[in-house]
Design a protein around this nucleic acid. Structure first.
Lengths: 256, 256
DNA sequence: ATGTTTGTTCCGTGACACGGAACGACGCAG
DNA sequence: CTGCGTCGTTCCGTGTCACGGAACAAACAT
């Protein structure tokens, strides 16, 4: 029954937008009365809301709980000042993302009034191989991960997406040398992207990127600002790790 | 059973931090085996995670779902560019918040490297009467809401929190005239705050604030930047409302 | 060595989740 | 106006699976 409830909630991905009861039944494959009963319970709990008294959408309680998720909250908090610096220096769309399985999940995206129309919303997932953040994470995510991605079929979001394993491998090797990952119209036509990994103890735990309309994409001007930003976050996160490890040890000794 | 699962998840508020099985059992008041079984299910669903293989914390899936909540996501997206402007102009901590019952919930908080130690994390709730954002929402939230808050006991976060209904009422009336709400060390000692409401169709749907260390709090310099920011968001949101209403009408006609 | 608390497994019992069937309301085509 | 389809909602008998007390081994403190 928890599974059914979760199925209903998850069926709101990726739009979160309002759905009618019949739509939910179809999306989840559950019988209509079951959806009706469970949805009513979820509304009572605040996990869902009713809009015009006919349709359901994700509820505010879910937002509050999601904001508390420790790993995500701490990383975002630490990175935010650097993302601000980056945005002020470039005035372009700035991303922070982490790896989740074979995909990248965006933790933060800041932009000005001329926001690009991008699929990289906060909380959304995109294939590792099609995004700057994803490539940065992939290049420094260990060989076994790289091989797994290169083995599987490479997804295609645009005609420019890298679907040839050999070319992707070459791009990753370049990234491993330069510490920077590039993406050119591989996720959205007309938008290019440069990204840098955030390290913590040898492996990349996140990545920062700047997305720019292809016409005014000038890597030589972005790299000198992006690199220190990623480095700054890395140093901050490394500081945590040490403190956290010490605290964990202390805790283990203190408890009981 | 959904209720029990929700009880477990909600018991992570407000820290989200890792808890042991016994702690969860105590926090929720549920028997240990029940928590054990449900927590295992929740981990399987990705709503909870296990840390050092002993403790539980809120899971990444929850973050992703929470980010999709439409009302919150749209408002944040619309306000973000203005929050950026505000931050660049003031270089102080900027908030975006909405009302949820008798409390304010923060949707966004951006800051630089010298982040203030504030209780206003994203997703957190604070009493309306103790925060700048809350006062702005309260002043333009309708008389029945005002009376309800003034009637109940006013919470006290610091010695400066307004607990006298008469003084709070006066502050709200000032805000209704000036369009600006002030808060001085009422939530955190040493921090003052100025806020402005975001309107949509006559009533305040959100509020923007700037929090500043008391020593360098200069309202006369903040107000001229804050006011147009709040106004800008208001105009954008008003645009939605019209479009959304039109779309809802169209939808009502189209569907069936 | 003893006591306490931890996380975990087992399992008989009973509550309650389940979903097919039926209902009234609504919009539409004929 | 009448039939038809689909909507959201309610009912209720059936069967399942959630429930949690009891018992367990392991870790730690005294």
């Amino acid at each position: 029954m928890l599974d059914k409830a979760a199925l209903i909630v998850e069926s709101f991905r990726p739009t979160g937008g309002p759905y009618r009861l019949a739509e939910l039944a179809q999306r989840t494959g559950l019988p209509k009365p079951t959806v009706h009963r469970l949805a009513a319970d979820l509304v009572r709990l605040g996990w869902l809301e009713r809009t015009d008294d006919v349709r359901y959408r994700l509820g505010g309680r879910l937002f509050e709980l999601g904001s508390l998720v420790p790993r995500r909250r701490d990383l975002r908090e630490a990175a935010l000042p650097f993302l601000q610096d980056l945005f002020e220096a470039t005035r372009e769309t700035v991303h922070l993302g982490v790896r989740e399985g074979m995909e990248v999940v965006y933790l933060e995206r800041i932009h000005g009034h001329d926001a690009l129309q991008l699929p990289s919303h906060i909380g959304h997932s995109l294939p590792l191989s099609c995004t700057g953040v994803g490539k940065a994470l992939l290049a420094f995510g260990g060989t076994e991960l790289t091989e797994e991605v290169l083995a599987g079929p490479l997804p295609r979001l645009t005609p420019h997406s890298l679907t040839d394993p050999a070319r992707l491998r070459m791009a990753l090797e370049n990234t491993q040398v330069s510490g920077l990952a590039y993406e050119e119209q591989e996720a959205v036509l007309g938008v290019s992207c440069i990204a840098a990994p955030v390290f913590a103890g040898g492996d990349a735990v996140a990545a920062i990127s700047v997305a720019v309309p292809r016409a005014r994409f000038r890597p030589a001007q972005l790299a000198p600002v992006l690199r220190p930003a990623a480095l700054g976050v890395s140093l901050l996160v490394a500081g945590w790790r040490r403190r956290h490890a010490a605290r964990a040890d202390a805790g283990a000794r203190v408890i009981h």
